[in-house]
Computed example of a mutant assay.
Amino acid sequence: MLKSIRVLALVLAAAGISSTAFAAVQIATLAVPGMNCSSCPITVKRALMKVDGVKEVKTSFEQREAVVTFDNSKASLEKLSAASTNAGYPATVKAAN
């Protein structure tokens, strides 16, 4: 039995399968209506980039939104909203895939 477990572990390791193999990249658009000056998007972007798992953030002052690309095994929509809110810019999810 122990030998079978070792063999399985070796096979999985050789195949590169890990717990992150089931992670998916997700893109979410957050509405951030409180962005009212040209430096606000910079603050929002910095706050969102600090969330573990965030890969990319694009903010738009004109649209009052942030588009976030993240690993959903590490980050969540709730964490993203909280990060923006904690930076002083309350955010809600507009769209997510």
Rank of each mutant, 00 (worst) to 15 (best):
P90S: 09
K55H: 04
A21L: 12
E78R: 07
S81W: 01
Q63F: 04
L48V: 01
D52M: 06
K55I: 11
M35V: 06
M1K: 14
F70C: 06
K3R: 14
V57A: 05
N86M: 10
N36F: 07
G53A: 01
V54L: 03
A13S: 07
T20W: 12
G53W: 00
N86H: 11
G88A: 09
N86K: 13
V51S: 02
S19W: 13
V25M: 05
N97Y: 15
N72T: 12
C40Y: 14
I17K: 05
I17L: 06
E65L: 06
S38L: 07
V54I: 04
T85A: 15
S73K: 07
E78D: 06
A87T: 11
A82T: 09
T43L: 11
N72H: 06
M1D: 14
F22N: 09
A13R: 11
V32I: 11
K55M: 09
V25S: 13
S18V: 13
I5G: 03
N72V: 03
A96M: 02
R46Q: 10
A28M: 06
E65P: 03
A95W: 10
S60V: 08
A96S: 08
V93D: 06
T85P: 14
E78H: 04
L10D: 15
A47T: 03
I42Y: 12
T20Q: 07
A91N: 04
G53C: 01
A96V: 09
V25F: 09
L30G: 03
F70D: 02
Q63M: 08
A14Q: 07
A15E: 15
S76G: 11
M49H: 08
R46H: 03
